[in-house]
Simulated scan of single mutants.
Amino acid sequence: MTLFDGIYPFYLQQRKSFVFDVSTIIVVIVFLTLASTFLLIIPGIRGRARLYWMVRVLFSLMVGVVIVVVQFTGNWESGWVTANTSYKSFSRAVVNADIGLHVGLAGVNITLVGNPVHQVNETIDYNEHFAWSFNADYDHSYSEGLEKGLPSPILYVAEKFTTQSPCNVHRQYRISSHYASASLWVAFCTWLISNMLFSMPVYGGYMTLITGAFMIFSLLSFSTVRNSLVCPIQFGTTSLQIGYGGSFWLTLAVGLLCFVAGITVVALHYFNSDLLKTFFDLHEDKAEDYQEMTEVYVNLQFMNSTLSPPQSSKLTPNDI
């Protein structure tokens, strides 16, 4: 990629996919490996228990992978706008481009894609990440963007989230994202505990309810930003509007699914425990125990000696 005067920039672009990155791919691979391992051993399970085991394990892995993956995705909020805008500072070049804003728990991604991609002798295809985690300084990332000479639309959107911006949304987004992330990590811990407690289904059901509650709490923590003043992002007569993204709705769906699963398990425990024990493969274990108890060996000679009546002895005159 070249600058508008034909000089190649000697810096590395701070790029990151706004939906999938390396961390997300690693997490997905780990959970797919666990699922594949289970599918290899499931043929050894007999009868209907095979189906029940498959449903329980795949549901549990699905909940776990969603809890972890949404921590690294960048589309909790997202929005696009197409506009004619200036491209570089100190240049009169105007380009037609799609400008996208994608907000995650760790920062924002700002994308700029030209229509067409090749304009003003350049390839206009940018995706810049600005982090606001505890070990990352957002203002420093923004200053580096200024030094790199990033396109004006990217710097304009990024400036809205700086600590010095009149919009004053940096602190709200940063704090709400940290609380949402912490709630999701607590949900991950309760998810692990629920898997251990499903040997006693009712307690596993209660812990699944708690997992869903923390997932919903993370959404409430993130959505508190909506109560703040909306900062306008204008490109001429058009404005960039953002709304809840795929990660937000996916977390909501899985959280509600955990609520449904937990309530179902608890309700079956009190109203139809036999069906619950069948689903969790507990009846077969008891039947095997009873079968083992019936297979006992009896010493017939001992039984005859104990069951025969004792013979009474009579005294004779000679014995006296």
Rank of each mutant, 00 (worst) to 15 (best):
F134L: 12
G145A: 09
A287Y: 09
I193L: 09
D125M: 05
Q241S: 09
R174K: 03
N227K: 14
V254F: 13
Q172Y: 14
S218V: 10
T208K: 14
L155T: 00
V68G: 02
L192P: 04
S17N: 08
F130C: 15
T37V: 11
D137S: 13
E295N: 00
K148W: 01
S183R: 03
I193D: 06
T123H: 05
T85P: 02
Q14Y: 05
F222I: 07
F235T: 00
S183D: 11
R174I: 05
Q241W: 09
F10A: 02
T237D: 08
Y179M: 08
V265K: 09
Y173D: 03
T211C: 13
Y87L: 02
A49I: 07
F302S: 10
F72S: 00
E159C: 10
I242Q: 07
W80N: 15
G47R: 11
N168E: 13
I233D: 02
S273K: 05
K314S: 11
Q241K: 12
V113A: 03
Q13D: 04
V108C: 07
G79E: 02
V103I: 06
N299Q: 01
W80A: 14
A187I: 15
L39I: 08
S183Q: 14
V202G: 11
N127D: 11
S273Q: 01
D125H: 14
G74Y: 05
T316E: 08
N195W: 09
S312Y: 14
L300T: 14
T162E: 02
S313W: 08
F280W: 05
R15W: 15
H269I: 10
I320H: 15
Q291A: 15
T37A: 06
P201Q: 06
L256C: 15
I242R: 07
T163L: 13
Q291Y: 12
I110Y: 00
D98E: 12
G145C: 15
Q311I: 12
V63D: 01
I7D: 04
R48D: 07
N318S: 10
G255D: 04
I242P: 08
W191I: 08
V113T: 07
T238E: 06
G74C: 03
F188H: 12
G243E: 06
V70D: 05
K16Y: 04
Y290C: 00
G212W: 14
F259W: 15
F134I: 04
E144L: 08
H170F: 10
Q311W: 13
D125S: 13
R171E: 11
S181K: 15
G74P: 07
G114Q: 00
G6C: 00
H140F: 13
Q14H: 11
D98A: 07
V27N: 01
S223L: 12
M303L: 12
F18D: 04
T2F: 03
E122K: 03
P9C: 02
L32V: 08
L51A: 12
T33D: 12
N127Q: 06
I210K: 03
I67V: 02
V70M: 10
M200I: 10
S239W: 01
S141I: 13
K277Y: 10
W53P: 05
S221V: 08
P317T: 06
V28F: 07
D319Y: 15
L252E: 07
D285M: 10
N304M: 03
E144I: 15
L276F: 02
W191T: 09
M303T: 10
S199F: 04
L250G: 08
G114L: 00
L40M: 11
L300C: 12
K148H: 01
